[in-house]
């Protein structure tokens, strides 16, 4: 019964989101796109986190996808939609090569390396002036689908739904067992036949592909980008804050966090244009200190306590 209820709720929510363009104007649709992009990044970050690996390289893969897609159109004459597929494949291949090297690292060594890689991508794009357009960035002939607001919304939504679908599959399949076992205890995992490197590589490549795809969708929707936009540290920081606030190691947590912080960030941007990032920093600190399982964890605990009538704290 409970399962049926949650499927119904998901179907209803999907229908509402699909119908957004029918009752929202161009500006709210653009805000919704931005929130959906961050949501997809937050979910993809969490998917790798389920293995215990903390990536700070989201912006790197996002930017890489943006540039692969933009340059495929500009230099390769590819049509915009194909270029998104191309950029996703490019992110997949790059992350596979990188993963082979860096997935031997653990904990903060892995995190710092992903952060450094992001900077390296950005510097390379900055300096390949003739090919990449350098610091001034690139301008596409026109946004995908002629810049139609509903079409752009649905494109971004498709990217998000794909991410949610993959994340849901991760939760329901043996990926869940593999990644959780790796996170909890690598020694036990190995003794039970888990090929740790293989599963880390699968998770890293899939999440990187999704991040590259969202970058490509973003650049094709705006029709231009610069290294500082495409590799903006916000694309790492915001998804991280969203996932932490909503609740890590789940699909629903990052989604909830993205809606809350996404709406809040639009408001904060207007109120404190140059200082709003400080607020995210505070949110991350407060959540880690007082609510390590995030809002979803808090809700689960409340429900469980309500059911058993026992207070655990």
């Amino acid at each position: 019964m409970k399962l049926k209820g949650s499927y119904l709720a998901a179907a209803a929510a999907t229908a509402v989101v699909v119908a957004f363009p029918a009752f929202l104007g161009a500006y709210p649709l653009a805000v919704a796109r931005s929130i959906m992009t961050y949501m997809a990044l937050a979910i993809s970050w969490d998917m790798l986190l389920r293995s215990g690996q903390i990536s700070f390289g989201i912006a790197g893969l996002f930017g890489l996808g943006s540039y692969a897609s933009a340059l495929a159109v500009l230099r390769g004459g590819m049509d915009p939609f194909t270029s998104i597929l191309f950029a996703s494949a490019f992110a997949a291949v790059m992350s596979m090569l990188l993963g082979l090297a860096i997935l031997r690292l653990r904990a903060m060594y892995f995190s710092i390396t992903t952060l450094a890689l992001m900077e390296i991508f950005k510097i390379v794009i900055h300096n390949l002036h003739d090919f990449s357009g350098g610091p001034e960035g690139v301008v596409l002939p026109e946004p995908i689908f002629g810049g139609s607001a509903p079409a752009l919304f649905w494109l971004c939504m498709a990217g998000l739904f794909m991410t949610i679908g993959v994340s849901w599959y991760f939760e329901k399949s043996k990926m869940h067992l593999a990644l959780t076992a790796i996170r909890n205890d690598e020694t036990s995992a190995r003794s039970s036949g888990v090929d740790i490197f293989k599963y880390l590589l699968i998770a890293f490549v899939i999440t990187s592909t999704l991040q590259g795809m969202m970058g490509a969708i973003q650049v094709q929707s705006y029709g231009f980008t610069t290294p500082d936009t495409a590799f903006d540290a916000n694309f790492t920081l915001l998804p991280l804050a969203m996932a932490l606030l909503g609740g890590i190691h789940s699909t629903i947590g990052p989604m909830a966090g993205a809606v809350l912080l996404g709406v809040a960030s639009e408001w904060l941007k207007l109120k404190i244009p140059y200082g709003h990032l400080i607020v995210y920093g505070f949110i991350i600190i407060l959540v880690i200190l007082f609510m390590p399982q995030g809002l979803v964890g808090l809700a689960r605990k409340t429900i469980r306590n309500g059911r058993t009538g026992v207070r655990h704290e």
Binding site: L177, A178, T180, A181, R183, D185, T187, A189, G193, H249
Partner: peptide, 20 residues
């Protein structure tokens, strides 16, 4: 070495899933 984020049954299952 319990896997504390998995249920008891899942702790046992990983042997069958990944080794077999």
């Amino acid at each position: 070495h319990p896997l504390e984020n998995l249920k008891v049954i899942e702790n046992v299952m990983i042997g069958a899933v990944f080794s077999r």
